[in-house]
């Protein structure tokens, strides 16, 4: 099973389980089923609760908030993550605040799903990783899918069990990637934290104690897994990889456990370097651990994402970049 199938199956399961689940988005009706096909089959199975909308990102997120305020569990698909900027006011000034402003008298069970990320040559306005602008917004939860474990259950928890607004990030390149189920992977030792939105800690199976901690989420976690193996087998550098599924609010306890042994942290993100996710992660662990920490960030260059293949590869982090950064820290 791949990530796309897991997410699509989860949406079907949620809509089957609860009649209060509604799905809104652009171009989501069958046979098209959404630009990335995550909504495939939903409109056929649940024609009354799957609503194809005009091209109105702010409007449909606002409608989703209104529906959620009245007790429905709403999923809004934003076709490309880049378009989330159009809905920023609705997310920041309405979805994230209304519960708190009402002293918890109203709740907003809303999941805004959107594909982020580059790698497909879609250029400056269809390849971005914009979630960093939504990290640290009080009242908003930001989740990011990986291939590890079960992204379908992550989405199901978000839709059916959470009563607060969630920005749910799906990297485009992950859709076709095969899942790495928790119990079947022989390549990594995997540890999972107990929260609803777990943090995973991986290391290459049978490797000696790690001397470096890497942290990444989403598609970068996928690349970091590849880097972890090559670092081990080609360079004898052994690292822990910590992968959060909830990137905001950020919980760093597994990271600190790992750093207690390694004292070295490499953060990897696809968003642009300056004021990114890694900056906050580093600030948190430095506050906790003090000056003994050695740290480095891998992120996209501080420029828009170009279209041409060689240019795009230069801007967005890759496995080689992660390996190089890791080796620089160890040498």
């Amino acid at each position: 099973m791949n990530v796309l199938q897991a997410l699509n199956g989860s949406l079907h399961a949620c809509m089957a389980e609860s009649e209060r689940v509604y799905f809104l988005g652009e171009d989501i009706l069958d046979p098209y089923g959404g630009a990335f096909k995550v909504a495939q089959g939903l409109s056929t199975a649940y024609p009354d609760r799957v609503i194809t909308t005009p091209v109105s990102e702010a409007g449909i997120v606002g409608l989703g908030i209104g529906m959620a305020l009245r007790g429905l569990n709403v999923v809004v698909e934003i076709m490309f993550g880049d378009f989330i900027a159009l809905a920023a006011d609705q997310i920041i000034n309405h979805a994230a605040k209304l519960r708190w402003m009402s002293e918890d008298k109203v709740r907003i069970p809303l999941v805004i799903r959107t594909p982020m990320g580059g790698g497909r040559g879609y250029g400056p306005t269809h390849s971005q990783t914009l979630e960093k602008h939504f990290l640290g917004v009080p009242g908003l939860r930001v989740l990011a899918v990986t291939t590890i474990d079960d992204p379908g259950s992550l989405l199901k928890h978000a839709i059916l069990e959470d009563n607060d607004p969630i920005l749910f990030i799906e990297h485009k390149l992950l859709y076709t990637k095969a899942l790495q189920p928790l119990n079947e992977t022989s390549e990594f030792n995997l540890e999972k934290s107990g929260e609803r939105y777990p943090v995973y800690r991986l290391k290459v199976a049978g490797s000696p104690p790690p001397t470096l901690t890497i942290t990444a989420y989403g598609y970068m976690a996928e690349l970091a897994c590849q880097a972890l193996q090559r670092l081990a087998f080609e360079y004898e550098v052994f690292a822990d990889l910590v992968v959060p599924t909830q990137i905001s609010p950020f919980d760093h306890h597994l990271l600190l456990e790992s750093l207690a042994h390694t004292n070295r942290l490499l953060t990897v993100e696809e968003g642009s370097h300056t004021h990114g996710w890694g900056a906050e992660v580093l600030a948190r662990v430095v506050e906790a651990l003090g000056p003994r920490l050695q740290a480095k960030r891998v992120a996209a260059l501080d420029m828009p994402i170009p279209t041409s293949g060689p240019l795009e590869k230069t801007v967005i982090p890759d496995v080689e970049g992660i390996i190089q950064a890791a080796r620089e820290m160890i040498s």
Binding site: G62, I65, N93
Partner: peptide, 24 residues
């Protein structure tokens, strides 16, 4: 009763509530 201080920002919320009430 719901009020918020962002001009126009509450209008899609109102429409979403109407969609919910109609659906229910």
């Amino acid at each position: 009763f719901y009020a918020n201080g962002i001009l126009g920002g509450t209008v899609p919320l109102a429409v979403g509530m109407a969609l919910a009430e109609k659906s229910l």
